[in-house]
Design a protein around this nucleic acid. Structure first.
Length: 1044
RNA sequence: GGGCGUAUAGCUCAGCUGGUUAGAGUGCGUCCCUGAUAAGGACGAGGUCCCAGGUUCAAGUCCUGGUACGCCCA
C-alpha cells in the first residue's frame, strides 16, 4: 500500500527529511559498500581554498562532482569520493595578516615566523563546518572525514617526493627571470596568478628626450608609462622596419616614428622633416644617460639604440625605453644585445642607495618626483594619463611590478611536447578547450616559477651551501633525518629552517628560504592525497590517471595545468582522462556576482525556497555545463519547479491517490508487463521511457550532462499532458478490469524508472518518490538501485510515429474548435481525418478512440480525398534537386511552383514529368523531387499540417446540444467539488433549480451526470443560500453540493 | 596587442554534415480545458539570425574582415 502524497508539497522540507534519512541510514556508505570489489571509477576532487565560504561556483562544480559519481555508482562502479582542502599559500597568510594587523613581511618576521605559521594553521579549518553544511545541503555525497589537507605531514612529504622526482629528471633550476612581483607581499607571483587581478588603471604616460651623442641638439623621443624605471634605463629600442623621421622643432631636432608625428604635432603645424630612416639604420647610435647612476655601464654596452621586434607604432613614439631589470621584453632584448641589467630596488620595491636621490621611496610613489626631476632638467617633453589594464596582486590588490628575481623554476618548456601528447589523451567537455584554450596555453607554456618568498607553505626541499653554491634536494622526511641527524616531526618552514646538513667534507648546507607555489601542492594531489609512494604504493597503479575531474574554466591555467605538468613530467601520462569544464555563473544583470552589489540571491535562500534539486537541475540543464557563462536568476530555478518538479510530483501524487483508493499493488515485473501490454497508450509511454533512459545514458557516458538533463522536461510533458491526461479515466473505472490494472502497472513502472534515471541529478525528490513506491524486495534507497537499462524491445518507433500523428491531428482539431468558437465541452458528431497517404490513414485509424475522446466527437471519419478540403501546390525539394541541377536549380524551382493540380496528381500516381525550364533545359522529375504544399480551401472548416488535414462537422443537433449542456453542468459541479476540497472518492448529494431546459437535460442525462460527479442523488429544490448560481448559455441555474 | 569563447523573439536559449514560412520555453493578449496539477491546451502579436564583404543554384549555418561582450594571456 502506498502512502498518499501531499498535494501541497514543500520541496525544501522534503529534502531535509531525505537528508536525515541518508544520514541515519548511512546510505552514502552503503552505496559505496554495495559496489566494493567492482571496477573502480576514479575521481579526483580539486581542493578549494580553506579560506572563504562556498559560492555558486563551488555549488556548480560540486553538483557536477556529485552527478557523475552517482551515475557511475548506479552503473555498477565503485566511486571513491574524498574531499580535499588547499590549506597553504597567500590566501591564508593574507587572512592572518589582516587579523594580526600586519602589512609586510618585515612585520611577520618580527612577529615570529613560527608564531605566524602556527596561527595560519589555526585558521585554515575555520570554515570547514560551513562548507560541510552547504556541500551536504546541495546533496553532494563526498567523504569529509578522510579528506586530504595540503598541510598534513604526509601530504607535504609526498610533495617533496614529487619535487625530488622533478629534480632528478633535471627539471628544476634556479634562474633569474622577470616576474610579476607583489611589492606588498614581497613575493613573485606566477604568471597565472598575476592575471587574476587585471584591472583598468590610469598611469602617467610621459615622453622624454634622450640626447644623441656626437650630434648637435638631436634627441630621440621615447615613451613610457613607468617613469620609475627610467633611472634603470640602459637602452632604447626601435623597430627594424618602422619608418622614423628626424624633424626640426625650433632649435632642436627630434627623432620619432613617422606614424606618430600627428600624435605629437597638430596637423596644421607639422614640423619640417629633415631626414627619414628605417629603424635598422639607427642601430648602435649612442645617447647620453638621463641619470648619472649607471654611467659606468656605458663601457659594457649600455646607452645605445637596439632593435626589438616588440616595438610598434601603436602607442608613444615608436621608440621604447629599455630597462632590462624591469620587463620581459626588456630583459630579453638586453640579453641579445649584451646589455647588462640593473635592479636598484629592495624586496618591498623601494629604491636602494644606488639611486641616492630617491632612496627608500616606493617606486610607484616615486613616479611623481621623477617626473618633476625630468621636467626641471628639460628632459620631459610631454605628459598625460594612460588608461590600460594592469595586473594587480590577486590577494592584496597592489599593482604588480615586473622585475628580475631569483626564482626556482620547473623547466616546462623542455617537456612541452610530452605535455601536448598527454593532452591528446584527455577528453574535454566542451571539446574546444582541448586544442583551444588549454592546448594553446600549453603550446605557449613558459617555465613555471614555483618558489614563493613566503612562509605558510610547503618548503622547497633544497639545502644549499652558500660558499660553493652546491645544492642537495631532499625527497623524504627520512632522508632529511638521515642527512641532518636530527629528529623531524613537522616540515613546515619554521621547523626545518634551523636544520642544517653537514657534508662529508664538513661543508654546511642551509635550506633555501622559499616555499612552494600552492598550485604545485594541489597539482601533486593525485599522489599526495594517499601519501604516495611512502604508503599505498600499489594504489596508484589502479588510481592514476583519474577517470574524471571537474572544475571551472578558471582552472585552465590553474589546477588542470599543474596536474598535467606534474603528471606528464613524472609518468608521461595525463593525470585525468575526462574533464568537465564549467563556465562562470554571472548575476542576472550579466555582471559578476558581487556581494557588495547584492545582485544575486543567496544560495541558502534559493535552496530554502525551491530546494536543492531545483537548483541542481537548473544548473545542470544550462550551457554552463559546456563552459559557457550562465546568467543566473531565480526565474530559471522557478522554471525548473514548474516544468519538471511539480508535474513530476503531481504525476506521482495522482498515481498514489488512485492506487490507495483501489488498494493496488504491483504483481508483475516490468518485463512481464511489457510483454502483456494491450493499450497503445501504455505501449507508447514505455517506448518513450526507453528513449529517455537511452538518451540519458548516452549523454552521461559522453559527459554531456546538459544534454541528459534537458531530456527530462520533454518526457514529463509527454507523461502528464498526454499519457495521464488520456489515461485518467482508466484509473476511475469502478471495476478492476485488466485495462485498469495495466494502466496502474504502466504508470507505476514509469514513475520508478523515471526516478532511477533522474536520481543522480535530482537525488531528493526521486528518493522520496521511490521510497514510497518501492516494494520490500527493492533496495531501500533509489541511490542503491541500478541505472535502468531497458531492453530495446521496449522501443516501438512505429507507435511513436502513430502517436505523434494522433497528437498532431488532435492539435489541428483543437485549432478548428478555437476558430469556430465551439468549445471542447460541446460534443460534435464527426471529425474528418484526411490524408492521401495510406500509412497516415492507417496510423490515425489505430488511434481513433484517443482522438475521438480528446476532441469530444462521436465519430472519426478517415478519408483520402484531401482535395475537397485543401488546394494543392508544389515546391521543389531543394535538398534533393540542388546537387543534381546546380545552376538550373532556380529555374527548376519556379517551374515546379507552377505545376498545376493535374500534374501533381500525375506525379503522385508515380509518373515522371518532363519540365522545360526558362533557359530551355529539359529535366524530368518524379514525386521525390517535389514537396506538396496544402492550403485550406476558404469556406471549409479545415486545418492542415503537412500530410494531415482535419475537418470538423459543426452541425449541432438537439441531442448534441443537450449533451453539451449536460457536460456544462458536470463541469460546474466538479468545480464545486473541488472548492469543497472533497476527496476523489466522496459521494455527493446535488440540489438544483433551473428553467425547464435544464430540468430536461438533467432528466435525460441523469445517470451520466451522477456517474461523472459521483452523486448519489440529484434533486430539484427551492433556491437557498447554499446554492451557487451559474449561467449556462442564457439559462440561469443554481446548484448545491454536499457530501453524502 | 594575442588566444579562446559568445552574439538568433522583450527575456533564457535550441537550430545536426549549407536546402526555402528560423524553432522552444518564458513574458504579453485572446479563447479553451480540468476527479492529479501551484497546472494544462489553442491561437495571436513579437526576428535586418551583430555588421560588411565573399564562396555557392542556395548561407542563421562555410570563408575573410570588422564590432560588442565574457574569460584568459601580454
Amino acid at each position: 500500500m502506498f502512502k498518499k502524497a501531499k498535494s501541497n508539497v514543500n520541496f525544501a522540507e522534503l529534502e531535509k527529511e531525505i537528508l536525515s534519512f541518508w544520514k541515519t541510514n548511512d546510505i552514502f556508505q552503503l552505496s559505496l559498500k554495495q559496489r566494493e570489489g567492482n571496477e573502480e571509477f576514479v575521481f579526483y576532487d580539486g581542493p578549494p581554498f580553506a579560506t572563504g565560504l562556498p559560492h555558486y561556483g563551488h555549488l556548480l562544480a560540486g553538483t557536477i562532482k556529485d552527478v557523475v559519481p552517482r551515475y557511475q555508482t548506479m552503473c555498477g562502479k565503485y566511486v571513491d569520493r574524498v574531499f580535499g582542502w588547499d590549506c597553504h599559500g597567500l590566501p591564508v597568510e593574507n587572512e592572518m595578516e589582516k587579523e594580526l594587523n600586519i602589512t609586510s613581511k618585515h612585520e611577520i618576521e618580527e612577529y615570529g615566523v613560527d608564531k605566524f605559521n602556527e596561527a595560519c594553521r589555526g585558521i585554515v579549518q575555520r570554515y570547514t563546518s560551513e562548507w560541510e553544511t552547504v556541500v551536504k545541503r546541495i546533496g553532494r555525497w563526498v567523504d569529509f572525514e578522510n579528506g586530504y589537507r595540503t598541510m598534513d605531514k604526509s601530504y607535504m612529504e609526498s610533495i617533496w617526493w614529487v619535487f625530488k622526482q622533478l629534480w632528478d629528471k633535471k627539471l628544476i633550476y634556479e634562474g633569474h627571470k622577470i616576474l610579476p612581483y607583489c611589492p606588498r607581499c614581497a613575493t613573485p607571483l606566477s604568471n597565472f596568478e598575476a592575471n587574476q587581478g587585471y584591472r583598468e588603471v590610469s598611469d602617467p604616460s610621459i615622453t622624454i628626450r634622450f640626447k644623441l651623442k656626437d650630434q648637435e641638439n638631436t634627441y630621440i623621443l621615447a615613451w613610457t608609462t613607468t617613469p620609475w624605471t627610467l633611472p634603470s634605463n640602459l637602452a632604447l629600442a626601435l623597430g627594424k622596419d618602422i619608418d622614423y623621421v628626424m624633424v626640426q622643432d625650433g632649435d632642436e631636432k627630434y627623432i620619432l616614428a613617422k606614424d606618430r608625428l600627428d600624435v605629437y604635432y597638430k596637423k596644421d603645424s607639422l614640423p619640417a622633416i629633415i631626414k627619414e630612416y628605417k629603424g635598422s639604420e639607427l642601430r648602435d647610435y649612442r645617447y647620453k644617460p638621463l641619470f648619472p647612476y649607471f654611467e659606468e655601464l656605458e663601457d659594457q654596452g649600455a646607452f645605445k639604440i637596439i632593435i626589438g621586434d616588440f616595438v610598434s607604432t601603436q602607442d608613444g613614439t615608436g621608440i621604447v625605453h629599455i630597462a632590462p631589470g624591469f620587463g620581459e621584453d626588456d630583459a630579453l632584448a638586453g640579453k641579445r644585445n649584451n646589455i647588462p641589467s640593473v635592479c636598484p630596488i629592495d624586496a618591498e620595491c623601494r629604491f636602494t642607495e644606488e639611486i641616492p636621490e630617491f632612496k627608500g621611496q616606493f617606486v610607484k610613489k616615486a613616479d611623481h618626483d621623477i617626473i618633476d626631476h625630468l621636467k626641471r632638467k628639460s628632459i620631459l617633453v610631454h605628459k598625460t594619463k594612460y588608461l590600460h589594464n594592469y595586473p594587480h596582486c590577486w590577494r592584496c590588490e597592489s599593482p604588480l611590478i615586473y622585475r628580475a628575481i631569483s626564482t626556482w623554476f620547473v623547466n616546462v618548456e623542455s617537456i612541452k611536447d610530452q605535455l601536448l601528447k598527454c593532452n591528446e589523451q584527455i577528453s574535454w567537455m566542451p571539446a574546444h578547450i582541448k586544442n583551444g584554450r588549454f592546448g594553446k596555453w600549453l603550446s605557449n607554456a613558459h617555465d613555471w616559477a614555483i618558489s614563493r618568498n613566503r612562509y605558510w607553505g610547503c618548503p622547497l626541499p633544497i639545502w644549499k651551501n652558500e660558499d660553493s653554491g652546491e645544492t642537495i634536494c631532499v625527497g623524504s622526511i627520512a632522508e632529511l633525518k638521515q642527512l641532518s641527524k636530527k629528529e623531524v616531526n613537522d616540515i613546515h618552514k619554521h621547523f626545518i629552517d634551523y636544520i642544517e646538513i653537514k657534508s662529508k667534507s664538513g661543508a654546511i648546507f642551509k635550506r633555501v628560504p622559499e616555499v612552494l607555489d600552492c598550485w604545485f601542492e594541489s597539482g601533486s594531489m593525485p599522489y599526495a592525497q594517499k601519501h604516495y609512494p611512502f604508503n599505498n604504493r600499489e594504489w596508484l597503479d589502479s588510481h592514476f590517471p583519474a577517470d574524471f575531474i571537474a572544475e571551472g574554466l578558471d582552472q585552465t591555467r590553474g589546477w588542470f595545468y599543474t596536474l598535467v605538468v606534474i603528471g606528464g613530467a613524472l609518468f608521461e601520462k595525463p593525470p585525468f582522462k575526462n574533464v568537465i569544464v564549467n563556465g562562470l555563473i554571472l548575476a542576472e544583470d550579466g555582471r559578476k556576482m558581487s556581494k557588495r552589489l547584492k545582485n544575486y540571491p543567496a544560495p541558502d535562500y534559493i535552496m530554502d525556497k525551491y530546494g536543492a534539486d531545483a537548483l541542481r537541475l537548473c544548473l545542470l540543464s544550462s550551457a554552463v555545463m559546456r563552459g559557457e557563462d550562465l546568467r543566473f536568476s531565480e526565474k530559471t530555478v522557478k522554471e525548473i519547479i514548474r516544468s519538471v518538479m511539480l508535474p513530476m510530483w503531481n504525476s506521482y501524487s495522482f498515481f498514489v491517490t488512485y492506487a490507495a483508493v483501489d488498494n493496488w499493488v504491483p504483481e508483475l515485473t516490468l518485463e512481464e508487463l511489457q510483454e502483456n501490454l494491450n493499450n497503445p497508450l501504455d505501449h507508447w509511454i514505455i517506448s518513450q521511457l526507453y528513449k529517455l533512459t537511452a538518451a540519458v545514458k548516452l549523454n552521461m557516458d559522453e559527459y554531456n550532462l546538459q544534454a541528459a538533463a534537458i531530456c527530462f522536461a520533454e518526457f514529463i510533458d509527454n507523461l502528464t499532458n498526454w499519457y495521464i491526461r488520456r489515461s485518467r479515466r482508466r484509473f476511475w473505472k469502478s471495476q478492476n478490469d485488466s485495462d485498469k490494472n495495466e494502466a496502474y502497472h504502466t504508470l507505476y513502472f514509469t514513475l520508478i524508472t523515471f526516478c532511477k534515471t533522474t536520481a543522480p541529478f535530482i537525488p531528493f525528490i526521486t528518493e522520496s518518490i521511490y521510497r514510497n513506491l518501492k516494494t520490500p524486495s527493492m533496495p531501500e534507497s533509489v541511490h542503491l538501485a541500478d541505472f535502468p537499462i531497458l531492453p530495446v524491445t521496449f522501443s516501438d518507433k512505429d507507435l511513436d510515429g502513430k502517436m505523434s500523428r494522433a497528437i498532431r491531428a488532435v492539435s489541428l482539431g483543437r485549432y478548428l474548435r478555437s476558430q469556430s468558437g465551439i468549445r471542447t465541452r460541446q460534443p460534435l458528431s464527426s471529425v474528418f481525418l484526411v490524408s492521401i497517404s495510406r500509412d497516415v490513414r492507417d496510423d490515425l485509424d489505430s488511434m481513433k478512440d484517443v482522438i475521438a475522446e480528446e476532441l469530444n466527437v462521436k465519430n472519426v471519419v478517415i478519408d483520402e480525398n484531401e482535395e475537397r478540403l485543401v488546394n494543392l501546390s508544389a515546391k521543389a525539394n531543394f535538398k534533393k534537386l540542388g546537387p543534381e541541377l546546380g545552376k538550373d536549380m532556380k529555374h527548376a524551382a519556379s517551374s515546379i511552383t507552377n505545376l498545376d493540380h493535374l500534374e501533381i496528381d500525375e506525379l503522385r500516381e508515380g509518373k515522371t514529368i518532363e519540365l522545360s525550364l526558362a533557359n530551355e533545359t529539359i529535366i524530368s522529375i518524379t514525386l521525390d523531387d517535389i514537396e506538396i504544399c496544402r492550403e485550406e480551401k476558404a469556406g471549409f472548416m479545415a486545418a492542415n499540417e503537412s500530410d494531415i488535414t482535419v475537418a470538423l462537422d459543426f452541425t449541432l443537433t438537439e441531442t448534441l446540444k443537450l449533451e453539451g449542456f449536460a457536460r456544462e453542468i458536470v463541469n460546474r459541479i466538479q468545480n464545486m467539488r473541488k472548492d469543497l476540497n472533497l476527496d476523489v472518492t466522496d459521494r455527493i448529494l446535488i440540489n438544483y433549480t433551473g428553467p425547464i431546459m435544464i430540468q430536461k437535460v438533467i432528466h435525460e442525462f441523469n445517470s451520466y451526470i451522477m456517474g461523472e460527479t459521483l452523486a448519489t442523488s440529484i434533486n430539484k429544490s427551492e433556491k437557498n443560500d447554499h446554492m451557487e448560481t451559474f449561467m449556462i448559455d442564457d439559462h440561469e441555474c443554481c446548484f448545491a453540493v454536499e457530501k453524502s
